[in-house]
Write a protein that binds this DNA or RNA. Structure first.
Length: 351
DNA sequence: GCGATTTGACCCTT
DNA sequence: AAGGGTCAAATCGC
């Protein structure tokens, strides 16, 4: 059984790799003939689909190893107790830090993580991805091994005021400097987005400078794919990725989209509603997604609705003008109870 | 003066 | 030990 499936697996990899290479060639040729925005976008999406398909295949192909490797999540908790003896010499000195870091570390492991890739066109004079509607405060920057650009670390401005533990990391892509990969960790438990639709000015002055007035235009140009990555959410501790660049799940009568697996447990920490791609070639096919969270905070104190992500802004800004066939889809995902088998209908990547 | 950013140091995980 | 993530003092900008 192993040889046959392995062979098919390799064939699939080969085919996908070929397809991607050919798409890259096509992009190269198109570059010499000043392609239209729509063509660029289409190519981008094709390449993106190939990349994701390959990633998924490779990931699932090595799932057993990944499983045992179990990166970054969960494992330490069993060996380190919060109030126990950390075995550190300068325990007294660092007691507070240890406590805090244990706490945040623990929290972090529980936090749902998802990745957005945002491309921004330089014609707009924009230096980077858009404000996402939340107020962030930069707390660090780090050179990453093998990366051409440093990674910036942001946390919610209201971390201490409202005990909001949302963070994000922003890293410019090596391959395409116009692409920023934004990794969000944790959901906002602050209510900054509840106040008004126009968010406060972004604190992100280093990575990108833009006025709020520019945001709409930028958002208009923003293409993003959204990948949700809930790492270490159960005992399997397998990173779970699911992307939304195309149809990938069941859609119910209310145009809500549901992953194939049961994700609608009541125990959920939050509900996701990422979404929607119009496969058409019009401007509206810029991938857009929104995430509204109905979230019980980790402290169980709040029960709030949030609008999340740059993409959400696009959707809200253009909901009336886009002809996306999929409206306000919404599906709940339990970041804790997620099925690690990742049944999110991979076939959708090729539609 | 206050809040945000920078950046070196420290801590944690692998 | 290495690399990534976070802290916090110093600095910057309004």
């Amino acid at each position: 059984m192993e040889s046959a499936s392995t062979w098919e697996y390799q064939m699939l990899i080969n085919e996908l790799t070929q397809g991607m290479e050919q798409a890259k060639q096509l992009r190269f040729y198109l570059c010499t003939t000043s392609p239209s925005e729509a063509q660029n976008l289409l190519l981008q999406r094709i390449l993106s689909s190939y990349e994701k398909a390959l990633l998924i295949l490779k990931w699932s192909g090595s799932a057993g190893q990944v499983q045992s490797a179990a990166p970054t999540s969960g494992a330490p908790e069993s060996s380190i107790s919060i109030d126990g003896s950390p075995g550190s010499e300068d325990f007294n000195k660092n007691f507070k830090e240890h406590r805090e870091q244990r706490d945040t570390s623990k929290k972090r492991k529980m936090l749902p993580t998802w990745i957005e890739q945002a491309r921004v066109t330089s014609e707009n004079g924009l230096e980077g991805p858009t404000d996402d509607g939340y107020s962030w405060r930069k707390y660090g920057q780090k050179d990453i091994l093998g990366a051409n650009y440093p990674r910036s670390y942001y946390r919610c401005t209201y971390r201490h005021v409202q005990n909001c533990w949302a963070t994000k990391q922003v890293q410019r892509s090596d391959d395409d400097p116009t692409v920023f990969e934004i990794t969000y960790k944790g959901k906002h438990t602050c209510n900054q987005s509840n106040n008004a639709v126009p968010p406060p000015a972004s604190p992100e002055k280093q990575e990108w400078n833009h006025k709020p007035q520019q945001q709409n235009q930028m958002l208009f140009d923003l293409r993003a794919k959204l990948r949700v990555d809930t790492e270490g959410l159960d005992n399997k501790e397998m990173p779970v990725h699911f992307s939304f660049p195309s149809t990938f799940a069941n859609v119910d009568s209310e145009n809500r989209i549901f992953p194939i697996s049961k994700l609608a447990d009541d125990v959920q920490l939050g509900t996701y509603s990422p979404l929607l791609v119009s496969p058409a070639l019009s401007e509206s096919n810029y991938f857009s997604a929104s995430s509204t969270y109905e979230m019980k905070s980790f402290r169980g104190a709040h029960n709030l609705h949030y609008s999340e992500s740059d993409i959400a802004e696009i959707v809200s800004a253009h909901a009336s003008t886009t002809n996306s066939p999929i409206g306000g889809m919404e599906f709940p995902i339990d970041p804790v109870e997620l099925d690690p088998n990742f049944p999110y209908n991979i076939q959708g990547f090729f539609t």
